[in-house]
Design a protein around this nucleic acid. Sequence first.
DNA 1: TCCTGACTAGACCGATTGGTCTAATAGCAG
DNA 2: CTGCTATTAGACCAATCGGTCTAGTCAGGA
Lengths: 185, 185
Amino acid sequence: MDMTDFTTRDRLITTAAMLFRQKGYHGTGLTEVLDAARVPKGSLYHHFPDGKADLARAAADWTAVEIMKIMDASFGPAANFNRGATTLFYKVAKLFDITQAANACPISALLFDGPESDGFRAHAEAVFARLTGHVAAHAVRLGLPEPDAVGQAETLLIMLEGGWTLARAKRSSDLLRRVPGRMYQ
Amino acid sequence: MDMTDFTTRDRLITTAAMLFRQKGYHGTGLTEVLDAARVPKGSLYHHFPDGKADLARAAADWTAVEIMKIMDASFGPAANFNRGATTLFYKVAKLFDITQAANACPISALLFDGPESDGFRAHAEAVFARLTGHVAAHAVRLGLPEPDAVGQAETLLIMLEGGWTLARAKRSSDLLRRVPGRMYQ
DNA sequence: TCCTGACTAGACCGATTGGTCTAATAGCAG
DNA sequence: CTGCTATTAGACCAATCGGTCTAGTCAGGA
């Protein structure tokens, strides 16, 4: 993955997102991120004055947007919620196969392993809420009654997060592909 | 939580399990574990020659057993699988409220944040397989047809893992309590 | 052309990391 | 009691951690 064309800031965010997903927040050294992104330390603290935690927050946000793009691509053209959800799980399974060792979203990586400040927790909470809201909006658009929509969105995110975790443990995306068959007939 | 009565080894395992769940593998320093368990460094390397990784493996195994005890207490007296599963989620929700900031199982903590050796991954995989098998056995005992049982066990673990993750993000166990109502009528 | 702010570059810092090593101590077998 | 092993105790170590700081580079406006 060559990222030479991106700006320094972008390269920092994307490589940080990748590394945090692979090895966790505390498991990733700043030097490692800097080396991988070919960025000197000075640049990091210019773009992210609060350092590592600042960078992690940006990485989480960036990844959340990427995930929402996948959601849009799945639910956008779908005839109904169940079809959209099924497509989503297949897309995620494919993504899993590509990135293999990476966790679903650095949001988890940050939640479990981020700095312990309250601000960080709040950020993780907000990101998850944004994702749930995003799915719920698609659900409503596809005709689900309003109260159901939120519940369905919540369940879907649980299955997504749990499914990715177990898939990672088993090192196989099959499990992710089996989910829609059980949940969305 | 006073653990003075336990042996040095036990104290090491339980406090490590607790800390790894709270702050992750890399996020927890050995000194921290040693201080909390009131154990000198020499003892650690006597009982766990391979150091931190060794300790983490033991902590993961210990927690897996604890989880299986909760599963037994839930499914053991249950009339059928769905009732057992419902009880399990309520028990887990209660556990969540007690331990608040801790992740469901250090197995995740290790998976996401453990050392990157293949041995470690294999260990995490084995622990998850053991948990799935455990639930599946209960399912069979409670009358589910054999092929269904494994699938149901897998789904339950996904919901458990995903549910805990989201609950942690939202800092509320409500979400865990809503799961059985959706899954197990 | 020169100035100025944004940005890059990396040497450097104290603190902390996981891990090693030696010495002291306990507990038990004879 | 003596002797031996299992365990405890913690000083110590190199490596790495996140973070600071100063110097240099570069583009664009005046």
